[in-house]
Amino acid sequence: MNIVITGANRGIGLELVRQCLTRGDTVHAGARAPEHAAELSALVQGSGGRLHVHALDVANEASVRAFAAAIPGPVHLLINNAGVRSRPDGLSDLDTDDLTRTFQVNAVAALRVTQALLPQLRAAGGAKVASISSNLGSVTDNSWGGAYGYRMSKAALNMAMRSLGHDLKQDGILAFALSPGWVRTDMGGSEAPTSVEMSVSGLLTVLGHLSAEDTGGFFDFEGKRLPW
Rank of each mutant, 00 (worst) to 15 (best):
T26F: 11
L51T: 00
I79W: 13
L77H: 13
V27W: 13
S92F: 11
A37I: 02
L77T: 10
K128N: 13
I79M: 09
S138F: 04
L94E: 11
D97H: 10
G24E: 09
A82S: 05
F103A: 02
P74F: 12
G7V: 01
I5P: 09
Q45M: 13
G11A: 02
V75N: 11
R10H: 01
A110S: 12
C20V: 10
F67Y: 08
A70S: 15
R32W: 02
A55M: 05
L21A: 03
N60V: 02
D141I: 02
H52T: 08
T140K: 14
G30Q: 07
A69L: 07
R32E: 07
R65I: 07
A31V: 00
A66R: 13
Q19L: 00
D95Q: 00
H52W: 09
V4M: 09
G49K: 04
V27E: 13
S131Q: 11
L78E: 13
G11D: 07
H76D: 15
T114Y: 12
V64C: 08
L21H: 01
I5F: 09
D98H: 12
Q45K: 15
G125F: 05
L117I: 04
A130Y: 10
A8R: 03
D93N: 10
L16M: 14
R32N: 05
Q115W: 10
T26S: 14
L136R: 14
L117M: 07
N9Y: 00
G137S: 09
G83H: 10
R23P: 08
R122G: 07
K128S: 15
T100Y: 03
E15C: 00
I71T: 11
A110P: 04
V53T: 06
V27N: 13
L118I: 01
S41C: 08
A82N: 03
V64L: 04
D95T: 03
N80P: 04
T96W: 15
P74L: 06
L136N: 14
T96K: 04
N9M: 02
A33Y: 14
A68S: 07
R23N: 06
P119A: 08
A29I: 00
V105R: 00
H36S: 14
N60M: 03
T6V: 03
V105Q: 01
G83Y: 07
T102L: 06
A38Q: 07
V108N: 01
L21F: 02
L43E: 14
Q45E: 15
G46A: 04
D25F: 07
L121K: 04
A107C: 07
L136P: 12
V4D: 14
G11I: 00
Q104L: 05
I3Y: 12
A82L: 03
T96L: 12
G83V: 02
L21I: 00
A116Q: 05
S86F: 15
A42C: 11
L77P: 08
I71Q: 13
A124R: 06
A68M: 06
P72C: 09
L51H: 08
N135G: 15
L16F: 09
T114N: 12
G11V: 00
I12R: 06
V27F: 12
A29C: 03
Q19C: 04
G90Y: 12
P119C: 06
H28Y: 14
H76W: 11
D89A: 00
N80Y: 06
G83K: 01
L43Y: 12
G13H: 05
D25V: 01
A123M: 08
V44G: 06
S138L: 04
T26Y: 12
I5K: 09
A70E: 14
A123Y: 13
I12Y: 10
N106V: 01
